[in-house]
Structure formats: structure tokens, C-alpha cells
């Protein structure tokens, strides 16, 4: 799931400077789970905008606005209101926002910051464990990603900053386990410590070139 967080309202307002008529686009999937872009959160934002004197021309909460064609189709019935708007404020992730800019010729303003690809540990608790590096290496750790869970993305064991199992960047307010201690414990438990001993080569960052793409071949 893509994790998003609403921007500070003043920042949203600043991006809408000089724009009175605003149309909103939300997302009923990830952004709903994050309480940023579902119907509820979008309506709440609308009220706040109105209180600031904005004229909200309408809104649409789309089921996966990251899908360009779905976005196009779902926004069609709102055409009239969108045409009357100065800009579109999007409460979905950055991908959703750019589906909108792809299908609508109006300025798009993000209402959220897109943070990471997250696991939902429980309702409202999101953690990053995969940063989509383009070449998955977690076979050698028996399933814990060192690229993402280690603050430095190290591939060969803990750095000198590890302290009693905690990461160098761990603080009281934001405790972080050392990924390499977790990996060590896992490999030990699963009787695979020999895997720890193999030197892992430098990662091939050309496996993920920005902007990336994937086009599946059509099956005959």
C-alpha cells in the first residue's frame, strides 16, 4: 500500500494562492486507509477550504486513481465542474495526482505527501519494508530486506553504529531495530548462518532507472 500523509494545511493553502474554484480528487484505496484521500478525509478538507473562502466546485473519490483510464472515465461525469475550476486538489498519492494531470488540462495541486510503500501492521500503523529497488535480494537474508530496513542499505552485516540491537539512527521517540541484528537472528534460527558469511557484491542500481516502466507482452 502507498502511504500518504496530509500536508500542513497552510502549505496546501499556499499552493492554491490566487485560485478560488477548486475541484478535489480522492482515492478510495490506499489514501482511504491512510485517512488522507477517502471520502471522509476529502469532505473534511472541503469544509476547511470553504472556511478559508474557497469555492469547491465538486469532488470525486476514485477507486485507484493510479489507474489512468479509470481516472479518465470516473472524471468524465464531472467535466462541467472541472472546466469551471482554477485547479484540481488531489488527496491521493503522487501517482494518482499524475493520472489526473495526464487526463485533465488544469493545474494539479497535491494535498498529501507520498511517503513510502508500506505494510499495514494494524489499522493506522504503517511501516516501510520494501523500497522497490528493482532487484530483490531478500533470498540471502531469508526474508528481511537490508536495502530498506537498514538505514544505510548495507549488504554485509551491521555497521559500527549498532547499539544493543538498535540502529544508529534510533531515538527514544522513533525506535528502530538494527536490520542486521534481525537478519542475524533470523538466519541463526533458520540454521542458515552460512549465508551471512558470503560477501554480497555491490548492488546494481541500473536495475531501477528513473522513470521506470514495465510493458507486458500480450499473451497470444
Amino acid at each position: 500500500m502507498i502511504i500518504t500523509k496530509q500536508k500542513p494545511f497552510q502549505e496546501i493553502l499556499k499552493s492554491l494562492e490566487g485560485e478560488t474554484n477548486i475541484f478535489l480528487v480522492g482515492c478510495s484505496v490506499c489514501a482511504d486507509e491512510c485517512q488522507t484521500g477517502g471520502e471522509c478525509a476529502t469532505k473534511e478538507l472541503i469544509e476547511t477550504l470553504k472556511a478559508e473562502g474557497k469555492n469547491v466546485t465538486g469532488f470525486a473519490v476514485i477507486n485507484s486513481p493510479c489507474h489512468v483510464l479509470v481516472t479518465k472515465k470516473d472524471l468524465k461525469p464531472h467535466r462541467e465542474f472541472i472546466d469551471k475550476s482554477d485547479s484540481i486538489l488531489v488527496t491521493a498519492c503522487g501517482a494518482g495526482a499524475q493520472s489526473v494531470s495526464e487526463v485533465i488540462e488544469k493545474p494539479v495541486r497535491p494535498a498529501v505527501d507520498t511517503l513510502f510503500l508500506g505494510n499495514v501492521e494494524r489499522h493506522g500503523h504503517f511501516y516501510e519494508h520494501c523500497s522497490m529497488c528493482g532487484e530483490c535480494v531478500i533470498a540471502f537474508t531469508d526474508g528481511i530486506c537490508p536495502i530498506t530496513n537498514c538505514a544505510k542499505g548495507l549488504l554485509n552485516g551491521p555497521c559500527g553504529g549498532m547499539n544493543k540491537g538498535k540502529c544508529e539512527i534510533s531515538t527514544e521517540d522513533r525506535p528502530v531495530d538494527c536490520a542486521w541484528v534481525l537478519i542475524y537472528e533470523r538466519l541463526k534460527k533458520l540454521n542458515h548462518l552460512d549465508k551471512f558469511k558470503n560477501i554480497q557484491p555491490a548492488k546494481n542500481y541500473s536495475k531501477h532507472l528513473k522513470p521506470d516502466r514495465l510493458i507486458l507482452e500480450r499473451k497470444k
Binding site: 552485516g157 551491521p158 559500527g160 549498532m162 540491537g165 541484528v181 548462518l193 551471512f196
Partner: peptide, 19 residues
């Protein structure tokens, strides 16, 4: 290279030392 003889836990540090 460097090594931390009093790392806690020490085992992963020793494995890295070997590497």
C-alpha cells in the same frame, strides 16, 4: 578496516569482521 570488540550483540560483528 575497523571492528568493535565490545559490540552488543557481538556475533554479527564478528561475522562481519571475518568478511
Amino acid at each position: 578496516a575497523t571492528v568493535t570488540p565490545e559490540a552488543d550483540p557481538i556475533e554479527p560483528q564478528l561475522l562481519k569482521f571475518e568478511k
